[in-house]
Design a binder for these strands. Sequence first.
DNA 1: GCACACTGGGAAACCGCTTTCCGGGAGGTC
DNA 2: GACCTCCCGGAAAGCGGTTTCCCAGTGTGC
Lengths: 330, 330
Amino acid sequence: MVTLEDVAKQAGVSLATASRVLNGSTRQVGADLRARVERAAYELGYRANIAAQTLARGASNVIGIVVHDLTDPYFAALADGAMRAAAGEGLLVMVGTTHRDPEQEIAYVATLNAQRVRAVLLVGSRVADPEVTERLRAELDRYRASGGRAACVGQDLLGVDTVAPANHEGAAALARSLAGLGHTRFAVLAGPPRLMTARDRCAGFVSALAELGLPEPRVIEGPFDRDGGYRAAQETGDATCVFAVNDVMAVGALAAYRERGIRVPDDVSVAGFDDIATLRDQVPALTTVRLPLQDMGARALELALAADEEPTVEQVPGEVVLRESVRALR
Amino acid sequence: MVTLEDVAKQAGVSLATASRVLNGSTRQVGADLRARVERAAYELGYRANIAAQTLARGASNVIGIVVHDLTDPYFAALADGAMRAAAGEGLLVMVGTTHRDPEQEIAYVATLNAQRVRAVLLVGSRVADPEVTERLRAELDRYRASGGRAACVGQDLLGVDTVAPANHEGAAALARSLAGLGHTRFAVLAGPPRLMTARDRCAGFVSALAELGLPEPRVIEGPFDRDGGYRAAQETGDATCVFAVNDVMAVGALAAYRERGIRVPDDVSVAGFDDIATLRDQVPALTTVRLPLQDMGARALELALAADEEPTVEQVPGEVVLRESVRALR
DNA sequence: GCACACTGGGAAACCGCTTTCCGGGAGGTC
DNA sequence: GACCTCCCGGAAAGCGGTTTCCCAGTGTGC
């Protein structure tokens, strides 16, 4: 391993000078010495030891992103946005996936704290479990107490900067649009009730229907993924319009209907939430609520890095996108 | 910031003892002292400083994964597989995305080298540019010279452990299957020729057709993504069967045909490559060559970590999966 | 011509942890 | 009871950088 000392020796200068030349400093170094150091570093193939730098500087140049599942395009888009923003700041990214286990999320915060990362981004829905939330919050507080910054994409439950998609309001707007097409008998593929995102979207949809004086929809719980949507779609009964709380579930529902010979949108209308890019070529094209996922990820990083004292909560509106998977009832 | 010294002081023991208790050691510590240290650490909320540990131990517990694009489900699946394997080994993961810029890939290797990560995984196609490959290889050699381990998913061009999908052979097998259905006029949506993966798949397909004595397919180059497939599909002429070198492009092609009222598979058959999970609900279901992406990612990590001297190259076969997007010509 | 910044170089302290090395006490053997 | 191990606790030397502090040399202003 080539160290700074090797470089300094080869260049015939002190450690201090070599450090100033190679790894940035406010202090100037004379042109000749600077050149000698650079040459030596190049010849030896010197690479600064970041662990040592981090230790000496007391600050690292990496951030941590914790997501539920990287193979879910929702998280991939969010993570990608955050990573682009990070790259723009010259930061490296450590990614952790919890596979939807809240304990893992807590463990990652502890680990990232140990890594002394500059910021931690918690991406994805909180769970409706006060005890778990409290423990996560405690771990996060401990991290922030030692100078770490944090932000979250999801619900504002942790006392940190938050990018909060308007799940409730978006779902409500979608409900109004669908009701405007003449639908009255709805079903909701609601996902798991302990997931706040699922719960908020479901609640927003249900309450909008109530305000319109429409009958209560049938609410079918299940997993938050494609197969969850597939299974839940078996139980939508005589609903003319089905709202899946995310696009991936909606795709599962489409598959279920297709297999059973139920035509979408002729026999039943289907809507999702998120507007996942990879799913835009689905047939029939999915009606959904668009969320600017990449921007949200990038924004979360900005918030985390900004030196504000008060935690900011940024509401992100969703935009209803009507496509072929729903039809108007005459 | 709570340091080990604070803990030791509070527990009334030496730094060495505290270290042995908290951060693992071959040496034993008496039960009472051990308890005192653990209590102090808990009360103070101590978190080991990993940068310091890394420096002192001379070895870190993080690995680096470099992918082209996380929002592409192909890379997401590969990365996920590698990350699961890493988690199983207690390793943390740093992810870098190059956004398909080979220079970025080189830069990441340098950065990860500076981080002294335990292993680097280069995931994704090499490019057919000897000069770039040479520079990447040099950077990689420098990293390995200082004790780093590396592996690659893609082509065996770097002199490191490699998981190599059988692109040529898989595409050839697909060609034979499709020819077996009676097709004779083919087109290939070939992607960018500088991408080895695209090139190999295209070549495998073309050469298999030649061996069968069939006419040369029309080869249409373009970007490796959905829009590339969409655009290339405009030029497939009178081909009865179109092979897109990856699933994402095939989906773009399906969209293009749909818009133009060309029915798949009635008017034209379409096949892809990879068998991306998120795309399995596509209509019509995509004929493709299945690659065990998650396993490949995991395997790459294993190879990198294994203490072998000779670089291993592991060929991964693809399995032709015939689905509704192709039909037999009677 | 002299006090006075100002500049750029080097010595050394320090960041927080691991690990070697040393030493004292307990237990075993003859 | 003398001698030898073995076990466990602590002092201190690193790990590879950054940065403070000191110092010599050079211009400046009057």
